[in-house]
Simulated scan of single mutants.
Amino acid sequence: MDIRPVEPADLPALVDLACAVFGPFYLDSFRPLAGEIVFANRHGDWQEDYRRHLAGVHDPAQGRYAAVAWAGDEVAGFAGWVVQEAERHGEIDIVAVAPARRRHGIGRALVEHALREIKATGVVDVVSVGTGGDDFHAPARALYESFGFTPYPHVNYTKAL
């Protein structure tokens, strides 16, 4: 496995991977739980949301960085992180691992890479990461907790009018 900074040519593969990874969450977890009105309002165009978000996932001038893990000639996963120098804060923004590549240490390697890069800036004292509290996100929570991240309870309510 090779981990390197994201390049513009990687973006279509990253969008495809994000949609493959997170599609089951939006369609099978969030949508049934939230209902059609909330789903349509909050995440009805989730695939386009990923296209927009990932277009700026690696923009060092804006403190945004990303790395992609390649296994042979295919994207095995990627991670994006943000460095907020003025706040001395870093945030792991996104981690996605191809379903067929899970449980092979790729997510761990990407988080280690992001943490190493964040620390190397010398301007970050604290790093945070957010994820869902549902069953879909349980593996992500376990990964982050294995790195010593402390979960902070948070509840977000949404209601259709």
Rank of each mutant, 00 (worst) to 15 (best):
Y152L: 15
W81V: 02
D135K: 10
A120W: 08
H89P: 02
G133H: 09
G107K: 03
P99A: 08
V6M: 14
R42A: 15
L17C: 10
E91Y: 02
Y50E: 09
H154V: 13
R116W: 09
A55S: 15
F78E: 06
E48T: 14
G90E: 08
A18W: 00
A140L: 03
A34G: 06
A9G: 11
V124K: 05
W81S: 04
I118Q: 01
G72V: 06
P151M: 09
Y152N: 14
L110C: 04
T150G: 03
F39N: 03
V68M: 06
A142S: 14
G72Q: 07
V21D: 08
A100P: 01
F149K: 04
L110N: 01
D10M: 07
I118L: 05
G130Y: 01
N41R: 15
A120R: 13
F78R: 02
G122P: 04
G90R: 06
P8K: 10
F149D: 09
L14N: 04
D16V: 01
F147E: 11
G44N: 10
E91Q: 13
R52N: 12
P32I: 09
D16K: 10
A18M: 07
D93P: 01
D73Y: 03
W46Q: 04
D125N: 11
G72S: 08
H89V: 00
V6P: 01
Y65R: 05
G107H: 03
R52W: 11
A13G: 14
R101H: 14
E91L: 12
K159M: 15
E91H: 12
A109K: 05
H53S: 15
V68L: 04
G130D: 12
V155A: 15
A40N: 12
V123P: 00
L110M: 06
E112S: 14
V38P: 00
R101W: 10
V82Q: 13
G107C: 04
V21P: 05
D73G: 11
R116K: 08
D49H: 13
A66D: 06
V123R: 14
E112H: 09
F78M: 07
R52Y: 12
T158Q: 15
A34T: 01
V75M: 08
E48K: 11
A61P: 02
G90M: 06
D134P: 02
A67E: 14
P32R: 09
K159V: 12
